[in-house]
Write a protein that binds this DNA or RNA. Structure first.
Lengths: 229, 229
DNA sequence: ACCATACTGTCAGATTCTGGCAGTAGCCTC
DNA sequence: GAGGCTACTGCCAGAATCTGACAGTATGGT
């Protein structure tokens, strides 16, 4: 196995163990000596991988994605840049910042002439969206990622308000509004909630009893067959 | 210099020469032997780089972007995925396909568990936009990239129609409409044209006499100071 | 026919990588 | 504080890989 492949393997090994793991163990899994492992770790850190080692504990990889060398066509990179610019204009602050950072990272590793092409890329998106919700979408995304319940006050189209506890598993971005897709404990069914009608958002520190992938799949199935109700 | 750095350098060398360039010349530029160059080319091709060699001519790199290994945070990759999904729903067929391809390329190189995360990514975008223009945006993007003039019939907000020849340099994506930003030969000024009011699009095979970066910069300047008219 | 070029196989020497050893330092438990 | 576990560094010899040179084949253009 070539060294560059081994480095990707190492990343994957680190990903599997969520808890700190000793260098010796990693070296055994990869079939290399501990000395070489230290060298590999140093190389990866040099490439920007967020690996942290602490004496007495072991190594942890902060969550993230490592992409190997990759080739994109002009149009593919234009699509990625345009898409990221769109996300950067979304009202979700953290996500918007992440999009800007991703673009900056890509630009940083490009040779000068390509970076100019990218900066002067001629696909633009309209003005930044103004937030119409007053809740923090970051909280919602975090609840989805961690499969945690959310509580809030919802005011429906008719104006009637009700207190809800839901299992959120997706966030939809439409032209003007954002929509939380979730299982509603009150209705015992899938519901979507416009973020601008949500108030008093409360991140409940309780895991919901299903996997979000499973919920997503079931919900998609309900979309395929037009509901009879 | 390490081998992996040299491979990136090779890509850049190939990019500089637009015309086919002989292996011997590339080897000289990189300070390596021709034999090693052939090996490096083979390695890059193995990694998916679109390098083509023809006996009697030399090597050409088909236009595209090579990204070195790169690390993204969870949120950054979520932003890229969400953005690409949005682009994939745009009515511009080629760009939409490019976004889908870019996502597929990224997914292809990810280990299985990460690919699932990506597939099951819980940020969604609304339904595909229906094209409200009946012109091919690909033609517009190509004219922009190649700095070529465009001719078309434009029907303004009042309904009055006029034949235009413009120097297009940017394409704006708004909620519902797409807008071509260009220098209008008739008005001798910057104008933007809603794509749904354009008909009879004609890609004129004549270069316009300015650089699109310069036009873009000037146009941006006119936006900063509110026009007095 | 001739030239320029891409491409492959082989092999010895140069270069790099690797594993083991010795040693330092930080964190945790007792 | 003592002891155990661990990260991390420098060094060196052997293993593995890379490199350059040469010889040879194939292909496209003139």
């Amino acid at each position: 196995m070539s060294r560059s492949e081994r480095l990707l393997d190492l990343i994957q090994c680190l990903r599997r163990h969520r808890r700190p793991v000793s260098g010796q163990l990693l070296a055994d899994e990869l079939g290399i000596s501990i000395r070489t492992l230290y060298r590999d770790i140093a190389t990866l850190q040099g490439q920007g991988a967020p690996i942290e080692g602490e004496a007495g504990l072991g190594y942890v990889l902060k969550p993230g994605f490592m992409l190997p060398p990759l080739m994109f066509t002009d149009e593919e990179i234009e699509a990625i840049v345009l898409g990221s610019r769109w996300v950067a204009k979304q009202p979700d602050q953290r996500l918007s910042a992440a999009a800007a950072n991703a673009l900056a990272k890509i630009a940083a590793v490009l040779p000068d002439d390509l970076r100019e092409d990218l900066d002067a890329s001629t696909l633009l998106v309209g003005p930044a969206m103004t937030a119409i919700e007053d809740i923090d979408l970051g909280t919602v995304r975090q609840a989805i990622r961690n499969e945690r319940k959310l509580g809030f006050l919802y005011r429906d189209a008719g104006g009637a308000a009700s207190q809800r506890v839901v299992w959120p598993f997706a966030l939809g971005f439409f032209d003007k509004v954002r929509v939380v897709v979730a299982w509603c404990e009150m209705r015992q069914d899938f519901r979507h909630f416009r973020t601008d009608r949500i108030s008093g958002l409360d991140a409940i520190n309780a895991r919901y009893p299903r996997r979000r992938q499973a919920l997503l799949k079931e919900w998609r199935a309900t979309l395929d067959k037009p509901s009879g109700s």
